[in-house]
Design a protein around this nucleic acid. Structure first.
Length: 199
DNA sequence: AACAGAGCCAACCGCCGAGGT
DNA sequence: AACCTCGGCGGTTGGCTCTGT
């Protein structure tokens, strides 16, 4: 560990926390022009004060054009459960079988929806069959948990910059974009911006 | 109308393995 | 052969939003 303390001056420059739209644009733009790879160098070359890891994660989980978010379909849910039964928490492996889905999303989905349902099921049937079996059964009947599709109404990838346009009450948006009700940035917006910026 | 609790999601952290020097 | 760097993975956490009281 502790590979040298590093210059604290450099550390101070590393940004953390939610990505801003500007950062996203920079990253998208850079990758569009130079491609992915060598994330640490990429982060520096693009002028982002982020770690390579952070850039990679942001790109893979959110910015990639082919990434699909929300609306986990019953089929996908079924597949997730089947693959999880087969491989366990090998999220990246599972994600490979779900085009457009990221390991992070699947992982979150599993933890929040399915695992919760397992617990509830376990509680309901004090000792009975194992939860895994329950899932399997549900899966095979393709009737998954009652919360089977809570995401039907999932609003499209509202931009993470807390545009809050969805929730006017949350008035703590970032200054740049907060004042418009229309400031609802979708990935499409970002990509079209990127295209406009071209380079 | 205000407050509290629960749920959800994005991002970070630490570890491990692969590749390069 | 050993060391170092980078990328990838899984687990965990923090913050925001929604729902119920």
């Amino acid at each position: 560990m502790d590979k040298k303390p590093c210059n604290s001056s450099q550390d101070a420059e590393v940004r953390k926390g939610p990505w801003t739209m500007e950062e996203d644009l920079i990253l998208i733009n850079y990758i569009a022009n130079h491609g992915e790879g060598v994330w640490n160098s990429l982060a520096k070359a693009a002028g982002l004060k982020r770690t390579g890891k952070s850039c990679r994660l942001r790109w893979l989980n959110y910015l990639r054009p082919d990434v699909r978010r929300g609306n986990i379909t019953p089929e996908e849910q079924l597949l997730i459960m089947e693959l999880h039964a087969k491989w366990g928490n090998r999220w990246s492996k599972i994600a490979k079988h779900l085009p457009g889905r990221t390991d992070n999303e699947i992982k979150n989905y599993w933890r929040t929806r399915i695992q919760k349902h397992i617990r509830q099921t376990d509680q309901n049937m004090n000792h009975g069959q194992s939860s895994e079996m329950m899932i399997d059964q549900q899966a095979s009947t393709s009737h998954v948990s009652s919360s089977a599709d809570p995401m039907e109404t999932y609003s499209p990838p509202s931009y993470q910059v807390k545009m809050e346009s969805d929730h006017p009450s949350a008035g703590t948006a970032l200054p740049v974009l907060a004042d418009s009700n229309d400031s609802y940035w979708s990935m499409e917006d970002l990509w079209s911006m990127q295209l406009l910026n071209g380079d």
